[in-house]
Design a protein around this nucleic acid. Structure first.
Lengths: 107, 107
DNA sequence: TCTATTCATTGTAATATTGCGATGAATAAA
DNA sequence: TTTATTCATCGCAATATTACAATGAATAGA
């Protein structure tokens, strides 16, 4: 009925799906890639970089923050965002584990 | 207005987002994991395994197939699904590339 | 204090996703 | 041919996502 049956799956499956959802929009991929490239924390001149409205960028940042992939700190009147290393590594390991668990042997 | 502005992003960003979207539902994660575990091709006794309706499973399989992560071959009256090794490795490399491109150095 | 800047939040509209019952196509077996 | 099995697709309802303009909160500087 339009709502995911999360009760049917393990918490690990649900968590992986949530992280994947964070990457499941090109704008968020672009934000992540830009944050990695810029290394030091960057605020929403992402608006200029991406060409989306400020409110839209803010919303995507919120989603990335909600899964912990990025962190934001107040920097005067602006906001400083950066990759959250701890979560990033956890996600990296989880993804690697899944990707490596497949060993080609097919029909 | 509710439709992703794919025109603003690179094709690589859009493609990665599409793959991520395939993983962005616990049922699809579960299907992938089951296919990996079962190794040989499996039809929709996924229905029994997951507890979702047959039509719903079929829809998820369709989405996984549409991004190429799985392949299906007719097997008499049933359908044999399996991981598509080629696409899997491409995705694996792309994900690894992104995950490895981050080098902790934050605010 | 007043103004400008930066960003989050709210509200709204358009579109996409999720889930399932019902139906139909295809094959296998009786 | 008839029946059973397996699956895809259609149609519907509920919910989620995407995008943006407008508004508001917070800070910096004049």
């Amino acid at each position: 009925m339009g709502v995911s049956r999360t009760d049917l799956f393990t918490s690990e499956q649900n968590e992986l799906a949530l992280v994947a959802k964070a990457f499941a929009h090109p704008a968020r991929v672009a934000i992540i890639e830009y944050l990695i490239k810029a290394n030091q924390c960057i605020n929403s001149d992402l608006v200029e970089e991406l060409g989306l409205a400020q409110a839209t960028i803010s919303q995507h940042l919120k989603e990335l923050k909600s899964v912990g992939l990025i962190a934001g700190t107040v920097e005067g009147t602006s906001m400083c965002y950066c990759i959250n290393a701890e979560v990033w590594n956890k996600v990296k390991n989880r993804l690697q584990g899944l990707m490596d668990s497949y060993d080609p042997n097919c029909c």
